[in-house]
C-alpha cells in the first residue's frame, strides 16, 4: 500500500509546512515509511510552492509520482498546472476561497473548502494551511486526527500562545473533511 500527496499553492500559504506536518505525523506515530520532498527554487519566491509526501508500507522509491493519489491546491495557478497529475479516482482538495473556476474533470473527487476565508474569520489568515491539513486528515483518515494534532502542537512548542488558535483551525478543518466524507460515501 502506497499513497502519495502533492500540495501546491503560493509561496507564503504554508504549503510546505502542511506537507511536513503530515509527513512528521506519519513518521512519529506509525511504522510506515514516509518521505517529504519540497520542490525548491525560483518557485519559492513568489510563484507556486509545492511539496510531495509519500506514505508507504514498502521502502519509498520515487519521492514523487508522475500521477498523484491526492492533490491539494491552494491557488488557481496550482490547479491549472497540476490538475491532470491526479490519477483517475483520486482526490482533489481545493481552497475554494481563491479557486473559483470549475474543475474540468469528472473522474476525480473534489473536496472544496474556503480555507482563506475561514482563517480570516478565526482572526489569522496564516492558519489556512492548518485548516486544510485538517480537511485532508478528516476526509482521508490517513492518520488519526489526534496524532496529527499532537504534531501541530509540537511544532508550536516555542510559541504556546498560538496553540489554541491552531487547535481551533485544525478541528474546524477535520470537521469539514469528515462532513464531506459522509456526503460522498459510496459515490466514488
Amino acid at each position: 500500500m502506497e499513497r502519495n500527496l502533492m500540495a501546491a499553492g503560493f509561496g507564503g500559504q504554508g504549503v510546505m509546512m502542511m506537507g511536513k506536518l503530515l509527513a512528521y505525523s506519519t513518521f512519529s506515530a506509525t511504522d510506515k515509511n514516509v518521505t517529504f520532498f519540497p520542490s525548491y527554487g525560483a518557485e519559492q519566491r513568489g510563484g507556486t510552492a509545492n511539496c510531495y509526501v509519500v506514505i508507504s508500507d514498502n521502502e519509498v522509491g520515487a519521492p514523487l509520482g508522475d500521477v498523484m493519489d491526492d492533490l491539494i491546491v491552494m491557488n488557481e495557478a496550482s490547479l491549472n498546472k497540476f490538475l491532470y497529475k491526479v490519477k483517475p479516482g483520486g482526490l482533489l482538495f481545493i481552497n475554494s476561497s481563491i479557486v473559483k473556476k470549475p474543475v474540468e474533470r469528472d473522474d476525480i473527487t473534489v473536496i472544496p473548502a474556503p480555507v482563506t476565508e475561514l482563517a480570516m474569520e478565526l482572526g489569522n489568515a496564516k492558519v489556512l494551511n492548518v485548516i486544510m491539513l485538517g480537511v485532508y486528515v478528516g476526509y482521508t483518515e490517513v492518520l488519526p486526527e489526534e496524532v496529527v494534532y499532537e504534531t501541530v502542537k509540537g511544532q508550536l512548542a516555542k510559541k504556546p500562545k498560538l496553540i489554541p488558535l491552531n487547535e481551533k483551525a485544525f478541528r474546524l478543518g477535520t470537521k469539514i473533511g469528515q462532513e464531506a466524507r459522509k456526503d460522498r460515501k459510496g459515490l466514488v
Binding site: 511536513k20 509527513a23 513518521f27 515509511n33 514516509v34 518521505t35 517529504f36 520532498f37 519540497p38 525548491y40 519509498v60 519521492p63
Partner: peptide, 10 residues
C-alpha cells in the same frame, strides 16, 4: 543530488 539533499526521510 538535489532530491537527496532536500528530501526528508526517517
Amino acid at each position: 543530488d538535489g532530491v537527496l539533499g532536500t528530501i526528508m526521510e526517517p
